[in-house]
Structure formats: C-alpha cells, structure tokens
Design a binder for these strands. Sequence first.
DNA 1: GCAGAAATGATACAGTATATCATTGCTCTG
DNA 2: CAGAGCAATGATATACTGTATCATTTCTGC
Lengths: 153, 153
Amino acid sequence: MQDINKILDAAEASCSASGARLTDKRKQVLSCLLQSQKAQSAYDLIQGVKENYGATMQPTTMYRILDFLESENLIHKLQLANKYIYCSHISCDHSHEVPQFLICNSCDRVVEIDVNSELIKSLTRTVEQVGYTLVSPQLELDCLCADCAAHAA
Amino acid sequence: MQDINKILDAAEASCSASGARLTDKRKQVLSCLLQSQKAQSAYDLIQGVKENYGATMQPTTMYRILDFLESENLIHKLQLANKYIYCSHISCDHSHEVPQFLICNSCDRVVEIDVNSELIKSLTRTVEQVGYTLVSPQLELDCLCADCAAHAA
DNA sequence: GCAGAAATGATACAGTATATCATTGCTCTG
DNA sequence: CAGAGCAATGATATACTGTATCATTTCTGC
Ligand SMILES: [Zn+2]
Ligand SMILES: [Zn+2]
Ligand SMILES: [Zn+2]
Ligand SMILES: [Zn+2]
C-alpha cells in the first residue's frame, strides 16, 4: 500500500483532468476507503467519516458521493457484498482493465486483479452462444483470505 | 422447460433421498419459481404464493424456505440481483457442476450454464497466487437478454 | 456581484434481511 | 396410542441497504 496522500493527489489530478471536483467530503470518503484493505458498506462509511472527520453525512449524500467516485474510477462497488472498495489503480499509469475481485467472505478483505483477457474472450463467447450480451465482465469471487483460512483450519 | 409437475416430483424424490421434507409451503415457493424464467426476490415470492395459493408468508418464513431449497440444490440465490431462480438441473441425471448465471439486468431473465472446467482451473490458479482460497466459483454475469438488447438498440 | 450549475442537506420512505421467542405439527419410541 | 423431541412455521420487531423529492448552500464563469 502506497502513501495515502500520494494517492489522494493522483485522484485529485485524475478528477481535474476529467473536469470533475474532488471536494472535501468526497476526499473524506475516499480517504476512509484508502485507509482499509477491507470493503465497507455505505453505512460503514457514514460511521467512518464521522469518527475520522466529525462530518455527518446522510445516506443520500453518501450514495451520491460513492456514485461519483465510482464514475471517476476511483472506487469499485462490489455487488457480491454490497460494499465498496478503493480502486488499486488510482495512481498507476496503465489504463484500467476489467477488474476481478477476490473477496474474503469472513473479513471483507479484497484483492483486485486484472482479468485475464483470454478468460474474458471465453466468457463473451459463452454468453453469445445463448443469445445474451455481456454488459460488464467484472468478476467477483467468493474467497477466504490467508488469515481467515488459517483460523478456520 | 419441462413439465412443472415432473420437476416437482423429481424435487420431492431428491428431498426424500436426503432425508428432507418438501412440505406444502416449500412446494408452493418452488412452484412459483418454476413458473417463471425470471429471478424473483423474496418479497416477489411472498406476493406470488399469495396470488397463486392464497397463502400468507412472513419474510422470516420465506427466507427460511429459500435457504432450505438452496441447501437442497433446488434453487440458486443470485447475489448480483438479490433474487432467486430455480436450478435448471433438478430433474437431470448428471451431477450438478459449478453454475454460472447470465442475468439480464433489464428483465431479470436468467440462463444457467455450467462453467467451463478450464475456466475454473484458471480462476483457482489465479486466486492461489495471491494466497486466497476459492470458496465458491459461482459466476454471475451482468448481461442483456436478446429481447432487451433488441429493445435497447 | 450575479446568474446558473453543481454539490450537499433534510425528510421520508421503499426494499432486503435477520433476531427472537412462541406455537404447531410430524416422527419415533415405548 | 401417548408423549417426548425435533422440525417447521407463525408473529413481532428491528436492522440494513438504497431511493425519491424538494430545499439550501457553494462554486464557477461572466
Ligand atoms: Zn480498479
Ligand atoms: Zn479474511
Ligand atoms: Zn443449478
Ligand atoms: Zn431481458
């Protein structure tokens, strides 16, 4: 994990480049996500910004901010867990590929990796065979992290 | 889609074989799911059994029944949509492989196919590389069905 | 400064899921 | 067949997740 401030700077630059503003509140939410390897729900984050910054946010505001951060590719929404996680590629140069997430179902720790392109091709082919169209090939896998697997064993 | 009564018989046999009971209520819920190609939420199903059988079920009861049906491999829960769909393999002989679901994000129509075993191997390998353990390789893909794609175009 | 747009606040509510304790009904044994 | 024990369901309350709507504040460009 790199320095959070460096990532925040990169996020700010990325927003500027797309004509968007990374406001204080948005930055607070993003910071909360960056401070943890674990996926957090919208309500976890409402609690988080309150504890860390004394800021009160209504659900509406939080969801709007999360939508914004997602549209700027700074975070990802995990459908499998109804939680959010920062994007691992905020401050790297290469363009963002289709993400694949390994989610620990015990502690919500998340690893983001790029999907193998062969795999996407294979999925797309399968989907087309039954007449469907793939909208988003984002994959989320139900996993156990090393720590939790050790405890369970 | 085969005859629903034939599938219900198969479901009943399958439950007997595992020492479980397919009670009237459980059968009503399963029937509702079998009557539609579309994924339905727990609350959709509460409405469904009311309309079709005049039976009133509380959420607690419905979730318990859904858990039961899932544990008997008669239905699947789709995390992506927070909805439930019958299993396509209730009355076929071959053992149930890892399922993969193509979910129309517009109309909730679902296609269940078996995951290519090469793909599972590839996923497992990837997961192990980062020290995680794959708990369930069930894949759910965000798609559009042929009808909805045609309308959107 | 001022108009217009973007962002946030505030209130209410819809939809999804679980906790807890009570009651009913089935099964098995004696 | 009685009655114990367990499986299934009922009932009530509540927590969690997400959206609709309208008002207010803050920023930007002129
Ligand atoms: Zn990412
Ligand atoms: Zn873990
Ligand atoms: Zn199935
Ligand atoms: Zn459709």
